[in-house]
Design a protein around this nucleic acid. Sequence first.
DNA 1: GCTATGGATAGCCTAGCATCCCAATGCTA
Length: 577
Amino acid sequence: MANQEIAKIFSEIALYLEMADVAFKPYAYERAALSLETLSEDVENIYKQGGIEALKEIPGVGEGIAKKIAEYLKTGRIKEYQQFKKKMPVNIEELNAVEGIGPKIIRDLYKHLKIKDLRDLEKAAKAGKIRNLPHFGGKTEQNILQGIEFLKRTKGRFLLGEILPAVSEILENLKKLKEVQRISPAGSVRRMKETIGDVDILAAASNPKKVINYFTSLPGIVKIWGQGPTKASIRLQQGFDVDLRVLPEKEFGSALQYFTGSKEHNIATRMLAINKGLKLNEYGVFRGKKMIAGETEKEVYEALGLFYIEPELRENTGEIEAALESKLPKIINYKDIKGDLHVHSNWNGGANSIEEIAEAAQEINYQYIGIADHTKFLRIEHGLDEKQLLKQREEINEINYKLKTKNYNLKVLQGCEANIMPDGSIDIEDEILAQLDYVIAGVHSNMKMDKEKMTERIIRAMENPHVDIISHPTGRIIQRRDEYLIDFDKILKVAKETGTILEINSFPNRLDLKDTNIRKAVAAGVKMVINTDSHHLDHLRFIKLGISQARRGWAGKKDIINTQPLENLLKFFNKTI
DNA sequence: GCTATGGATAGCCTAGCATCCCAATGCTA
């Protein structure tokens, strides 16, 4: 699908236009890019079936942009983009990823210092060349260096949410071969780590060579690093590498256990085997030369005297000790979620109407879906004011009535995602908050406060009797921004006292709370909710990412309020049906 | 460049903050 490639080009054109100080066009290209990114249909199909006119049906795409899409599909390039690139051959994506660096700065840095990429930038900043440029100073130079440091720390890793769709596509493709008996992802993908270095896939098959050949001929491969009779390694268009190993079925379990890791978990399990007079490796569990287990992971763990350990727990952070004493937690299941409480509608700049969201929720078989639009302080997101919230309440009531007549077992709830102001107050009147089914509050501004002030700010919001949930409680954006400075233990303590629920935000680059914080919350007896923060129907599927982090954080069904049926859920908000 | 409507033209993308230079610019949510 060319959607993503074209979207990327449009985002870059938007940046080039901003450099040239062109008004409004950047916004148009940015919108078209966003629209293509979330489009589930293949643009190429749309174009083949209906030409330019069909392309214009895509939101944010008009005559001009439609023609550019067609140009790309026909020639593999967009002339205007090539011209921009020629005039200023810089790696915009790379430079723009540094926090604090935007299009105008990229332009000036190229103009004065011929900075083209991250390497040039770091060299210039370290040599102290940037601080002397007009409109730049020592502080800016220091911020740039910090931004680069942050990028380096996270470099070479991809978001779980970016990786999973590609992995399932590969698995689906390989499953089509009748020779494939068993297949599974391994490594950090299987453990659902928030970021992934590369992807490992294991297969058991009767004809390994055929499977490998088929694998290396899949669409979307840009490079084959190596290909042997039982193993191949490739790079996908998206930039990450995938390894496939094919092995005999009788070793599949032990190989899966070995390649799933983590390394620390494996070291501990091998030690355990040695203590029992056994040997554990990727080929099986052995007593002397005799193989006593290996076909399934379950029998591998049992041979070591352990209960089966879910992949998400295998980090050697106590799971082995727990499995020995049969004290493993019963962690939440991927099917346990009964509804999503953080969905944005087109009332505040989301893509879909509340009715469309309700239909999608019914499709997933949810029992409830919560509309939580931004509130008035966030003007850029068209945040709702008190009056609009009341009006939205009327629409939701009508939709619920309609759902009833359709015999749907689904209820639309009205929440909001209000803003926690720097002093900890909420940007919506109490009287109106009281009329909503529940209230989410989150920090969306002034994120660089000192630890004490930020902690106090959030605590004050939690103490507001109308606030039920704190959204993305630590504010981090993976690979872009660290958590804000907070005393998380103190926040947990107050959350427990006030009965405030902390969100596990499932958006691929948030995953906030993260796994280790979830585990702390579980230990502190603080309840959590797994939400997607969807701005588009396509985002509803992110729930899986949030659940995976909850599992990594040892959370059970009882720790997560939206595993509960509607009636119980509302009790957490002190509301009844 | 897109969208909405007066069908050729207006309106779109705001507000707070940091930085750099002492008013203006650019970034971020």
